[in-house]
Write a protein that binds this DNA or RNA. Structure first.
Lengths: 354, 354
DNA sequence: GTGAAAGCGCTAACAC
DNA sequence: GTGTTAGCGCTTTCAC
């Protein structure tokens, strides 16, 4: 098998005109045979295809786009691709996008709002079909106006904003929002833990103003109240959604001498860090203290003990985001979907014999 | 703060000509003030900028690209973004790309060669500055010709192929390859385990024809021989790099009654699955059996016991890939970089007292 | 069935 | 300084 590079074909990109010249036809004809659906004589088609092959020609996608026949692009903006749940969503987005023949870009903002804006502007310039903003954030007035502005500016170039697990905007804003049930999942999980006889549940939360964290915390509170219990405020610790935060918070709780028989972490990552801190303190889980997470990331099974947690259909969420964003006409009503979650019982929560 | 969408500005994308008309100047003038570096009268600049703001105008990036002044694009192709080590690399790529003002696309192929080819063709059409192919694979003649062809075709449109942790091609192929040391890391790790007095090391490998897996297995073998030991062939089990594979292989080893005091997993994911299987069998790690992994994914610390493993600088690898791919002129010699790895000792390997 | 010409949205060389 | 023109690589009328 000889290498193409040795056939003497110029290393400079060839254009449709080069192909036309080599095949002895006009550029329009080349365009037509490549386009597919257009009557072209068999002989012409053959020689054009030969020229295409010889030159290893591919039409410039950007030029096609300008001419009005591009491959639509779709952007996925998240905090950090390194977070397992985000990676899962990215996977879903990516798969669905390619299935639909779209290109998909991802961008990590590392939580930087300026960076996020910058990227959105880039996508607007690319005339992306949709941009998907992912993950909870602080739901401030500033957030709402900023994001509404993004939605409008995207709409003005025929693009569409999708909010995924992010606080919704005021009605009337051209945006699609897809959420998953944080409060309900946390409620169910907490109810499960309480049903095992636990009374003092340590909550290892995220940033207090973070909507995802808030939803989960609300579920924790509501489940207590449903049993006529009022959670002890001292039992809520706040940090972020990382493994390190869980580790730090857990050590802190232990050193403070807080009393609790179970801990509910805002995410599985937090739970992982907490678990390690517990182990380091010589405590057994769930023998001495029970532990639960949230997200059901793949690794949750391999923690020891296997983590009881709430399953969130992240990959499905990603797929859904692109489907609803793409499969809509400009006048469709703005959608707001809420995906369900469910608790997965494994081995990290013990029944209190008392 | 009133919403822009209510100002009556048309919802259809505005062009540079619309801006020009509104500002009462020519399109070129608009282009010039937007371009920045060109003398324009202050008054003109002001009115143009006002028009830009009023229309919320952004130049079409595709058109700019056709005109020869686009934002370069860069593609990152991997098996599965869901794998923690890949996600780490993707993160590095993404960060470095945006730092350099490039757009970066990612694509998961799910190990499907046809899909990979398709995507490369797409990137060629996009006139991507570089495409980075990531992760080990079977190093067959078919692989070499196929990949060499990709390298050539990319080169023919002025793009560049980068192989990252993937088998290198024959010399003369226009490709940049960046590898990390699989054999060396595995050798060091295995030597460490042997030095703790272990003699029978179970190796939980990947696919036998997978270059990454092979490298690690070679290190395992070499470390034995350096001590005058010959590893028992019965002690090598092959699967893939997933958590499930590790779990399954470990159960299999246990049920077969294989004798060993330590296990070396080809990846941390495999180790995680193996660890769970060990626990399920009522075995203590490292009390009854020692365990080591490879990759040093963030989660390795939260396994219990914390996993002794080999650190691979994945994020750095990603950054390096884009830097070398982008920072080169067409006539630079083809590069071949090899990044070092080092073992991270944690708590999963015990010293044999015997 | 095929070619010439106009146009997509932009930039750049060339006037004035 | 600013407008006019040509051109990037492609598609798509509109003729023949």
């Amino acid at each position: 098998m000889t290498r193409k590079s040795s056939t003497g074909v110029s290393a400079t990109r060839s254009t449709i005109r080069d192909v036309a010249a080599r095949a002895g036809v006009s550029a329009s004809t080349v365009s037509r045979v490549l386009g597919g659906d257009y009557p072209v004589s068999a002989a012409t088609r053959t020689s054009v295809m030969r020229a295409v092959r010889e030159l290893d020609y591919v039409a410039d996608a950007r030029a096609k786009a300008v001419a009005g026949v591009g491959t639509p692009t779709l952007a996925f903006v998240l905090d950090d691709i390194t977070g397992p749940s985000f990676a899962l969503m990215a996977h879903g987005v990516e798969r669905e996008a390619t299935r639909l023949g779209h290109l998909s870009l991802v961008c990590s903002t590392d939580g930087d709002t300026a960076h996020e804006l910058e990227f959105v502007e880039m996508m607007r310039a690319q005339r992306a079909a949709a941009v998907i903003l992912v993950g909870g954030t602080a739901d401030t007035p500033e957030y709402r106006t900023r994001t509404a502005r993004i939605a409008d500016s995207l709409a003005s170039v025929g693009s569409r904003l999708v909010l995924c697990g992010r606080p919704p905007l005021n009605p009337g804003t051209p945006v699609t929002v897809i959420e998953y049930d944080n409060e309900g999942g946390a409620y169910a999980l907490c109810a499960h833990v309480l049903a095992q006889g636990h009374q003092r549940l340590l909550f290892l939360g995220g940033r207090p103003d973070h909507t995802t964290a808030q939803g989960r915390e609300r579920g924790y509170t509501a489940a207590h109240r449903a049993r006529g219990l009022e959670p002890d405020p001292a039992l809520r610790l706040h940090g972020d959604f990382t493994r390190d935060s869980g580790h730090r918070l857990m050590r802190q709780a232990l050193s403070q001498g807080l009393e609790f028989t179970a801990v509910m972490a805002a995410t599985d990552m937090v739970a992982a860090g907490a678990l390690t801190a517990l182990h380091e303190a010589g405590l057994s889980v769930p023998g001495d203290v029970s532990l639960a997470g949230y997200d059901d990331i793949p690794f949750a099974r391999d923690l020891h003990p296997a983590l009881t947690t709430v399953h969130v259909p992240y990959e499905e969420l990603g797929r859904l985001a692109v489907r609803t964003a793409l499969g809509r006409t400009p006048d469709d009503p703005d959608e707001h979907l809420l995906l369900g979650t469910h608790v997965v019982v494994r081995n990290s929560v013990a029944t209190l014999s008392s």
